[in-house]
């Protein structure tokens, strides 16, 4: 319990402190800056909805990253898995003409499979070749973006568009809105269900037991008959699948098509979210909301107080930096 609050407290302190300094550097009044930030994020229903959109976009990859962390693995490749998921959903969705209640689950699954496969591949490299998953997932990020860029610039490019992207998905495959005229869709409840499902998986199932054992005591797990390779593939696969599903929800709910700019770094920010949430699925929901406020409010802050919105990236980076001493990470990881 206390660990969770300490992480949140530290994060809040960093946001307040560093944020103020940076705002001053930009010639803005910190009070004004924060007012714009929070007002912009929570001020009215539309803004709150948009904040929740950002929350959802962060929640998926953060849950994925957290699962990997619990297994003692560093999934730095959530960004690439997200892209692959979005690519699958966008390219298949563009040609699918089925009623929504069939196509949407199908496309979400496609996204999960694509992201999951991407993650499982890194898991396979780790299992079979002892390849450090930090490096492999990082590399796969870039490869994913380049691969997707190639596809939507060429073979999968929509004939109707001038930009490099897939064709717009048929309306049936669009995720239904939760609040009218906003981007907030069914994606949020789906994400919340995933969070609950993961909590159950980790705490109550045998798979979760084995995954946590590998994460907390790899040698003991090995002696207990748990194959580290199998867990690596499963954990990174699951991690990638969740991130991939997140990418699919961005395509189905927000953009309604796929292009390579679908994520402004959600996969990396998700690492901060996972840490602030202490790698616990339910706490991560709260953390994602906090970061969603930052992401959405930053634009308003830029427009209203003249503070460049990249300050958010700086703050997020600092949060990761300082919170890197979380309990799941300070044991020695078998490499």
């Amino acid at each position: 319990m206390t660990g969770r609050w300490r992480a949140a407290g530290l994060a809040a302190a960093i946001v307040a402190g560093v944020g103020s300094i940076a705002m001053l550097a930009a010639g803005a009044n910190p009070i004004d800056g924060f007012a714009q930030l929070f007002g912009g994020a929570l001020g009215d229903v539309d803004e709150l909805a948009e904040t929740l959109v950002q929350t959802t976009a962060l929640l998926f990859p953060a849950l994925g990253v957290a699962i990997a962390f619990r297994a003692g693995l560093f999934n730095i490749g959530a960004e690439g898995q997200l892209v692959m998921g979005g690519l699958a959903a966008g390219s298949i969705g563009a040609v699918l003409t089925l009623p929504g209640y069939v196509s949407i689950p199908l496309l979400l699954m496609a996204g999960a499979l694509a992201g999951g496969g991407w993650g499982a591949f890194a898991g396979f490299l780790r299992a079979r070749f002892a390849a450090n998953e930090v490096i492999t997932t990082l590399m796969l990020n870039v490869v994913a973006t380049l691969f997707a860029s190639y596809l939507v610039g060429g073979p999968l490019k929509s004939p109707a568009a001038t930009a490099s992207e897939t064709a717009i998905l048929p309306h049936a495959s669009w995720l239904p809105e939760l609040v009218r005229d906003t981007r907030l869709t069914l994606a949020l409840p789906i994400a919340l269900l995933v969070a609950l499902g993961l909590r159950y998986l980790l705490d109550r199932t045998v798979f979760g037991y084995e995954l946590r054992a590998v994460g907390e005591a790899p040698e003991a797990a090995r002696r207990a008959g748990i194959a580290p390779g199998r867990i690596a593939i499963a954990a990174l696969g699951l991690s990638g699948a969740i991130a991939g599903m997140g990418g699919a929800t961005i395509v189905l709910g927000i953009l309604h098509r796929f292009n390579v700019a679908l994520s402004p770094g959600y996969g990396f920010i998700a690492i901060a979210v996972a840490l602030v949430g202490n790698c616990d699925p339910i706490a991560i929901v709260a953390a994602a909301f906090a970061f969603g406020i930052l992401q959405n409010g930053a634009l308003a802050m830029q427009a209203g107080a003249g503070v460049p919105r990249d300050i958010v990236a700086v703050v997020e980076g600092l949060v990761i930096f300082v919170l890197a001493g979380r309990q799941y990470l300070t044991r020695t990881v078998a490499r």
Partner: peptide, 13 residues
């Protein structure tokens, strides 16, 4: 802190 995660944070930062 965990060095890998801190490094990731440093990059973002």
């Amino acid at each position: 802190v965990d060095q890998i995660v801190a490094g990731t944070g440093l990059n973002l930062l």
